[in-house]
Amino acid sequence: MLEIRNLSAGFGKVDVLRGIEFHVEAGELIALLGPNGAGKSTLMKSIIGVGIHHRQGEIMLDGENIIAASSHDIIGRGLAIVPEGRMILAPMTVEDNLRLGATRLNRSQGHSLAEMFEYVFDLFPRLHERSDQIAGTLSGGEQQMLAIGRALMSAPRILLLDEPFLGLAPIVVQEILDALTMLKEAGLTQVLVEQKLDIALALASRAYVLIKGEVALMDTVKSLAARKDLDNLYFALASVRETEEIS
């Protein structure tokens, strides 16, 4: 469904990502793992086409290369992102945030705004209760629900989530885990960026591990979980790369 071939991307003249190969099939939930600064968020931004200075390679969506397309076009084709740091529009109400999430809602495919509101409010009833509240006054967990709900308002076929569990209390983490599981069972394709392995392993079927801007490992979650060096996987992968570079 989404396939990335030999992607390099970065800021200024520096490449943060090099030779990325990555693919997601319809209905899959993929985890994208890696330590701080590995380039996970950069990869998300490259796919959407916002906030990146240069990109090279191929990003194929349903067999069409979208690397030169504009972000509003890419989102219109069925991608949506829950960005790092949530990026809710703090001075606006919850309802206005959600409404703006539907900017690129494809009405010709039979989706209506009312139907999308119902869908999101079913998933996160707390947003319904607080629909008139100013988004900036929501709790951290509620803001994250809003960020996810807002992305869903465009009825995406692929949802990108950049560390949606960061800084949340265990109860809220569970609530959001449940929501993502429901979406997965409903057949929504998802790419989940995470640092913590346990969360990723609980949700995903396959995982990519990004180290220093390159894909260091791609494996099924089953065989990942069976690895002996799982507790310090990033460290192990990083040192393997270094010895490779030296030899």
């Binding site: 906030g51 972000s71 989102i75 900017t103 807002r150």
Partner: peptide, 9 residues
């Protein structure tokens, strides 16, 4: 940036 990520042109 947030606006662009929502698909606003």
């Amino acid at each position: 940036v947030a606006a662009a990520l929502l698909g606003i042109n």
